[in-house]
Design a protein around this nucleic acid. Structure first.
Length: 103
DNA sequence: ATAATGACTTTCA
DNA sequence: TTGAAAGCCATTA
């Protein structure tokens, strides 16, 4: 199995600054894999992990987890860092979206 | 080796 | 903006 791939995904994930969110696709490109692998890697993460898995959302700016399976948890985590949600439960990636060349 | 699955993305209408 | 279809890639069966 590509443990190294997962390691790269986790490393990239750990590079996401607090107060910002990123998408699966972004991490996928940085880690050199497809976005689904990012999801699988996050899914394999232990519940007590220190990695900011909650800072990863889908391209639509929404939490990809279904309600009752982590959605509420992730949402609260993000709100804790000052990230605000839209009326439709969406996050403004223009403001909170993390990408390398941004300041 | 083949088929099915998934915390996704992009494209087309 | 919303929704369906195709694309993508590692894991699992």
């Amino acid at each position: 199995m590509n443990s190294e791939l997962y390691s790269r995904i986790y490393a990239t994930l750990d590079a996401v600054p607090a107060g910002f969110v990123t998408t699966y696709g972004t991490i996928a490109k940085l880690a050199g894999c497809g976005p689904r692998q990012v999801g699988q890697a996050l899914r394999a993460l232990p519940k007590d992990t220190k990695l900011p898995w909650f800072r990863v959302i889908n391209s639509s700016g929404c939490i990809s987890l279904p309600p009752g399976y982590g959605y509420e948890v992730q949402r609260e985590r993000l709100e804790q860092e000052g990230i605000e949600f839209n009326l439709k439960g969406r996050i403004n990636l223009r403001r909170f979206g993390w990408h390398l060349a941004d300041g």
